[in-house]
Design a protein around this nucleic acid. Structure first.
Length: 454
RNA sequence: UCCUCAGUAGCUCAACGGUAGAGCAUUCGGCUGUUAACCGAAGGGUUGUAGGUUCGAAUCCUACCUGAGGAGCCA
């Protein structure tokens, strides 16, 4: 771009950015009151009033209201700022000053400006400070991420993921990731994305790392895998993505009660970390944090049997043997201020690998954890079958091809032990933390039934 | 896959059978403390597509396309 004024420089001179005075992030501004610093970022918004302008700059760590007064600045500097367009990139030099009127509590008195790129007024930044519809925003997802609420949600996501890793890493679990290309269905029931693998065979995108996790638990004791998961279900609701992230721990020598204990402890830990580390973001999202502060152990626990009775007493049409719909899940959690654990489901509605209850073999030792406020099932897991003959029987009952599961049967042939684990969906968890209407805002680039761009 | 709703200016919406409008964004002008700043002016439209009804269709009908919400299924 051309040099419109002595202070407007091209990218070729960007090394100047790192010279004195010190370059800081907006998040660090509180540590530099009275100092002259440089901040580098993008023009978030600009208000002007004749001979004074208020550029608001964002740099990914926060927003900084700057003040440029015409009488204190060389004319080209003031003029370049006065007409600057939204999301233009720039470096601002000035003194930090505590200012209660400014968002964030600090303000920067501008002494110099370098514009790195001025967004053209012929093709202005499409996302204005006004309202926009979902379709428009999703089409501009790559730019929408710059907006405050989206930025906050992704930072909460980061905290949730970091908390999950910290929890497992400090509780004796080893990260053992499982493949994304898999040869067959893990559970047989749900639909899988089919991939043409070099033309000579089909592979599928994983829907769960669980079967591999079970083998890994026999090698490492306690393991977890954490990665993207794919479901080719034609679900079109605010709770569904076709590509989502799931953490799946698996533990040798663990029964259903241990699985429930770990899941509860993990959830309480994550919620605590989000409250502690991301209070600013929760404020931006206007989240009612009292709803999250209530999330403490113990969680209410009920059997499937009792859950069905409660639902029937609340007017649900559900019959014993059926699975819960979304309305049922909301009914079940409405009287509680924390997640609800439901265990011992009919084996007929659960996957083949669940251990059966010894007293009542029609029940599977599985547990689902349903988040409050209508966010639905965030955890599903349980105890797995460890007996070889039983697992073979269940494979047959489910009409699953035995050859594909030979390696999985080996887990029971060579030193089998009771074991269990669960899967937790990151996006639903983040949506719950943030109080968002839809999981599409909890992942940078959501993949949904009718949307795979940008 | 099924059900419901919606497509009008760059964006958010109004007009609901009779000459297509507002706010924001953009451009120009004004304003030294603004908080989605404000005030004045200008430019900006084959009303999602294709048919049909009508003297006349953004408006009514049919099909299709695109999107949203929900059901089933699931994290």
């Amino acid at each position: 771009m051309s040099a419109e004024s002595p202070t407007v420089r091209g990218l070729g001179e960007a090394e100047d950015i790192r010279s004195v005075p010190a370059t800081i992030t907006i998040g660090e501004a509180g540590g530099h009151p009275g100092k002259t610093v440089r901040i580098q970022g993008w023009l978030y918004n600009l208000r002007k009033s004749g001979k004074i302008v208020f550029p608001i700059v964002r740099d990914g760590t926060g927003l900084m209201q700057c003040v440029a007064v015409k009488s204190n600045l060389p004319e080209p500097v003031f003029d370049s700022l006065k007409s600057l367009t939204q999301e233009s990139s720039l470096v601002v030099t000035g003194a930090i000053r505590a200012e209660p009127r400014a968002p964030g509590g600090y303000e920067l008195d501008v002494s110099d400006v370098q514009i790195i790129q001025r967004v053209s007024e012929d093709h202005p930044y499409p996302i204005t400070p006004k309202e926009h519809g979902v379709e428009f925003l999703m089409d501009h997802r790559h730019l929408w991420l710059r907006s405050r609420r989206q930025h906050a949600a992704i930072r909460v996501r980061h905290e949730v993921i970091k908390s999950i890793r910290d929890y497992f890493d400090s509780h004796g679990f080893t990260l053992v990731d499982t493949p994304i290309f898999t040869p067959a269905a893990c559970e047989g029931t749900t639909t899988l994305f089919e991939i043409d693998y070099f033309g000579d065979k089909k592979v599928y995108l994983t829907q769960s790392g669980q079967l591999y996790n079970e083998a890994n638990a026999m090698a490492f004791g306690k393991v977890y895998c954490f990665g993207p998961t794919f479901r080719a279900e034609r679900s079109k609701t605010r709770r569904h993505l076709t590509e989502f992230w799931m953490v799946e721990p698996e533990m040798a020598f663990a029964d259903l009660e241990e699985v429930k204990r770990v899941a509860e402890e993990l959830i309480v830990y994550i919620v605590g970390r989000v409250l502690e580390q991301r209070s600013e973001e929760l404020k931006t999202l206007e989240r009612d944090v009292s709803k999250l502060e209530a999330v403490r152990a113990p969680f209410p626990r009920m059997s499937y049997d009792d859950a069905v009775k409660i639902l029937q007493s609340k007017g649900s049409e559900i019959q014993w043997g059926g699975d819960f719909g979304n309305a049922d899940e909301t009914l079940l959690t409405e009287d509680f201020d924390r997640p609800v654990m439901v265990d011992r489901y009919p084996a007929s509605i659960k996957a083949f690998y669940f251990q059966l209850d010894e007293q009542r073999p029609e029940l599977a030792l599985g547990v689902d954890i349903i988040a409050p406020e209508g966010y639905g099932e965030i955890v599903g897991g349980g105890q797995r079958i460890h007996d070889l003959a039983m697992l073979e029987k269940r494979l047959t009952e489910h009409n699953l091809p035995r050859e594909a599961f030979e390696w999985y049967l080996d887990v029971r042939r060579f030193g089998t032990v009771p074991h269990g684990g669960f899967g937790m969906g990151v996006e639903r968890f983040v949506a719950w933390m943030c109080g968002l209407e839809h999981v599409r805002e909890t992942i940078p680039y959501p993949r949904m039934l009718y949307r795979t761009r940008p």
